[in-house]
Simulated assay, not measured.
Amino acid sequence: MRPLRSPYNPIHIALGLVIWSLWFVALYGGLSVACRVAPPALSLGMWNWLNLLLGLFSVATVALLLGLARWSWRAASRAGKRSPERFAARLAATVHLVGAVATLVVAVPLLRLPPCV
């Protein structure tokens, strides 16, 4: 069994979507709590503190997923030509990219609308 920090560990194949799902739950959970506790003024529209925090959280998540995709892709290029390690690393890189795209697809419309409406 490969150590968890190894880019060839099969756990990395699912990690991109796990990170995305945790981000999704935290994003909408945080939005719901913030709208209940301290909703921003509707007159501000999309330019408010809540959208700023959600945007920063989304950018950090996309950066993490893209960094993991790059790390996995580089590991795949170092592996043997027909090795299982190369397959696992390339698949993990692809899943990380899918997670990053899914994060952007959910975050962009959310951040363009005023929250708590």
Results as ranks from 00 to 15, higher is better:
21 S>F: 13
39 P>F: 06
39 P>H: 07
77 S>F: 01
100 A>Y: 04
39 P>L: 05
9 N>D: 13
69 A>W: 05
72 S>P: 01
7 P>H: 06
102 A>V: 04
84 P>L: 08
76 A>G: 14
99 G>Q: 07
4 L>F: 11
84 P>D: 09
16 G>I: 04
100 A>K: 05
24 F>V: 03
96 H>L: 05
45 G>V: 06
106 V>D: 08
25 V>M: 12
34 A>F: 05
61 T>K: 04
68 L>N: 00
99 G>H: 07
74 R>D: 00
116 C>V: 11
105 V>G: 03
4 L>T: 02
110 L>Q: 10
21 S>G: 02
98 V>M: 13
108 V>P: 14
8 Y>T: 05
99 G>S: 04
100 A>V: 11
16 G>K: 13
78 R>S: 08
22 L>A: 14
35 C>Q: 06
80 G>T: 03
100 A>N: 05
66 L>W: 09
23 W>H: 14
104 L>P: 00
114 P>M: 12
8 Y>M: 03
72 S>Q: 15
24 F>N: 06
5 R>E: 15
6 S>F: 07
48 N>K: 00
22 L>S: 07
42 L>Q: 12
68 L>S: 00
87 F>D: 01
26 A>P: 03
49 W>H: 09
71 W>P: 09
51 N>R: 00
4 L>V: 01
40 P>W: 10
87 F>V: 14
20 W>F: 15
41 A>V: 10
79 A>K: 15
104 L>R: 02
32 S>Q: 05
106 V>L: 13
69 A>F: 10
28 Y>D: 09
19 I>W: 02
8 Y>I: 01
77 S>M: 12
3 P>W: 11
41 A>S: 13
32 S>F: 08
80 G>H: 11
78 R>A: 10
18 V>I: 12
110 L>N: 11
75 A>V: 13
62 V>I: 14
18 V>Q: 04
3 P>N: 02
32 S>H: 06
79 A>I: 02
107 A>S: 14
73 W>Q: 04
16 G>Y: 01
114 P>D: 15
78 R>E: 08
61 T>E: 01
43 S>L: 14
56 L>S: 07
12 H>L: 00
116 C>D: 15
37 V>F: 07
55 G>W: 02
79 A>E: 08
52 L>Q: 14
